[in-house]
Nucleic acid binder design. Structure first.
Length: 552
RNA sequence: GGUCUAUUAGUCAAGGGGUCAAGACGCUGCCCUCUCAAGGCAGAAACACGGGUUCAAAUCCCGUAUAGACUACCA
């Protein structure tokens, strides 16, 4: 076909396009950003629910854009109308809000490079395709599905690469007259890439994460525009990421094998190439089959949003986990830098895992505990309150009624070098600190106690009435109680007791245990004296009597 | 079948020719002025296999095995 014929063909196929390629090139000028700023994008397809894997890639997009003062935008990739799900788009945006992974541009977030929904960009794609046809780099293909399936089967039998390429691409060199005839017959067609590649050439790509990858050059006449004139992912990716001036395409590594195609598309479209960073999927060893698979929202509860929301797991703790799997050196850094936040860490592609990463629930739990340990009692209080307001209104009311004391309880042993690390989720607060609120304490009474031991209430009442002074230091308090112990036939320390067990009724720890049991309903608790100070003498005595009555 | 990638303790992983093969989570034991949490110390636990290159290989090369991805008018 001559150039004149190709122009005629292009106009025949796309007679009604308002603009040309140059128009769009000018419409979306280069971004006014420093050269080191990264422009990233999250491009979900609204065809199902968002899971942790999608979120992880969005998290990476956000982190890299943020730390380079760049742009992180949201683009809805909905070119396949057949697979659309009702409410799919709303679900994506609400999940992003829920997980606090917020783009600063894009669909539903405004911006100058829109529309950010691919179904609104059909004309743009067609404009570039028209240009490709004129240049002889794309052509209409009239093959039926049956014909293509036959070829596929034949290729499978002959053990050769599957696809339309070389002599299989029968419509590649159709004459203008032939095409006109087919069009006149009303035959349906797709637009295929007229691939200029040769699979004998090996080309090397640099992936930001995976490093060098070698591939045979792309030589398949891949479909660019579907029968319904909407683009395939490949075309849309090239055009959008060019026009929206993405610098780094961060996406799942299921796309690695499309690299030769995408690279070729950027070349023939005369676009500046983008950098790619293919991230490994979050995997899980399936309990039933023992195989490694991608996480699934259905099988893995922690893969869905609700697990975190309803389970009372702070989103920031999830961010910490995502950060530790995002950069292999993050975890160590975070442990060493008590006062630092995710935002202070410098993420690099080099430190991203190349293979798959298993979701490690035990580690995640530990990270959650670390998260809480670094929060002040007051912060824990308000965050727990927010959670309770959504999922446990009764407890929320109790929290508000007991706010001041509750904050004090939550602050016990929080101020030192080694803050308490006993809470992993908001719902643990109610469990762990039930003794902090009278009504809960009375309701729970001593049901959590795992002992049949009967503690001597008269001994403890005597101690509280005579010895206990709440206005002293912890050290003084402990000396007093040791004093009390020895006067009542108990050893002042467990060591003394162990040396001569027959000389004593028990040791100071037994007395502490008795107090602890009576006032908290459990044998383990944070620092006993701190708890007593917050409760005050009256409540302490009330609770001892409560215990007394309860056991009679 | 073809193409690509990966494989270091139970898990996450560092290390890219010379290391006693880091560290974290989990596990075990001991210590830590009353318990628990935390912390400290100690411990068990790993380079998939077979060849080759080299004075020297977890590291480079080639096979094999295993796993994963792609091989759609899905993204």
């Amino acid at each position: 076909m001559t150039e004149e014929e190709r122009k005629e063909l292009a106009n025949l196929l796309f007679p009604n396009l308002e603009h040309d390629r140059d128009y769009y090139e000018k419409l979306y000028p280069k971004r006014n950003l420093d050269s080191n700023c990264m422009v990233t994008r999250y491009g979900p397809s609204p065809t199902g629910s968002v899971h942790l894997g999608n979120l992880f890639s969005a998290f990476c997009d956000m982190v890299y854009a943020r730390q380079s003062n760049g742009v992180f935008y949201l683009r809805i990739e909905d070119t396949d109308q057949k697979r659309m799900i009702d409410g799919g788009i709303e679900n994506i945006t609400s999940v992003l809000h829920g997980f606090n992974i917020l783009p600063n541009e894009g669909y539903s977030f405004s911006g100058e490079y829109g529309p950010y929904k691919q179904s609104d960009r059909t004309e743009i794609y067609q404009t570039y395709i028209k240009d490709l046809i004129i240049k002889g780099l794309a052509y209409p293909c009239f093959m039926s599905e049956e014909e293509q399936n036959t070829i596929k089967e034949e290729q499978a039998i002959n053990k050769v690469k599957i696809g339309i390429y070389g002599h299989y691409a029968v419509d590649r060199d159709l004459s203008l007259t032939e095409i006109k005839e087919k069009l006149a017959n009303g035959e349906e067609y797709v637009i295929r890439l007229k691939s200029p590649g040769n699979a004998k050439n090996i080309i090397e790509f640099i992936d930001c994460i995976k490093g060098k990858i070698k591939f045979p050059e792309h030589d398949v006449d891949t479909i660019l525009l579907k029968k319904d004139k909407t683009p395939t992912y490949h075309l849309a990716h090239a055009i959008d990421d060019h026009l929206m001036h993405t610098t780094h395409v961060i996406r799942g590594d299921e796309w690695v094998s499309s690299l030769p195609l995408h690279y070729q598309l950027f070349q023939i479209l005369d676009f500046k190439p983008v950098k790619y960073a293919h991230i490994a999927p979050i995997t899980i060893k399936d309990q039933e089959t023992g195989t490694i698979r991608k996480i699934s929202k259905r099988k893995d509860p922690w893969a869905g949003v609700k697990f975190y929301e309803e389970g009372g797991i702070p989103i920031d703790a999830l961010h910490l986990y995502l950060a530790t799997i995002a950069n292999t050196n993050f975890e160590e850094w975070y442990l060493k830098n008590q006062d630092k936040k995710i935002e202070d860490f410098n993420f690099t592609f080099e430190k991203m895992a190349i293979g798959g990463t298993s979701f490690d629930e035990a580690k995640f739990n530990n990270i959650c505990k670390t998260y809480f340990s670094r929060k002040t009692g007051e912060e824990v209080f308000y965050e727990t309150l927010e959670f309770a307001k959504k999922y446990d209104q009764d407890y929320a009311n109790l929290l508000e009624e007991n706010k001041l004391d509750m904050i004090k309880f939550l602050s016990i042993e929080k101020d030192g070098e080694r803050p308490r690390k006993d809470i992993a989720k908001y719902s643990d607060v109610k469990e762990e600190f039930s003794y902090a609120i009278d009504t809960l304490f009375e309701k729970e009474n001593y049901s959590k106690l795992d002992t049949d031991k009967n503690y001597d209430t008269n001994l403890i009442l005597g101690y509280v009435n005579i010895y206990l002074d709440l206005n002293v230091t912890n050290e003084k308090w402990f000396n007093d109680i040791k004093d009390f112990a020895t006067h009542n036939g108990y050893a002042a320390s467990p060591k003394d007791f162990k040396k001569n067990p027959d000389n004593y009724k028990g040791h100071v720890g037994d007395i502490c245990e008795a107090i602890r049991v009576m006032i908290t309903g459990r044998r383990q608790s944070p620092d006993l004296f701190s708890i007593m100070k917050i409760l005050g003498k009256d409540k302490i005595i009330n609770r001892i009597n409560f215990y007394k009555n309860f056991n009679n």
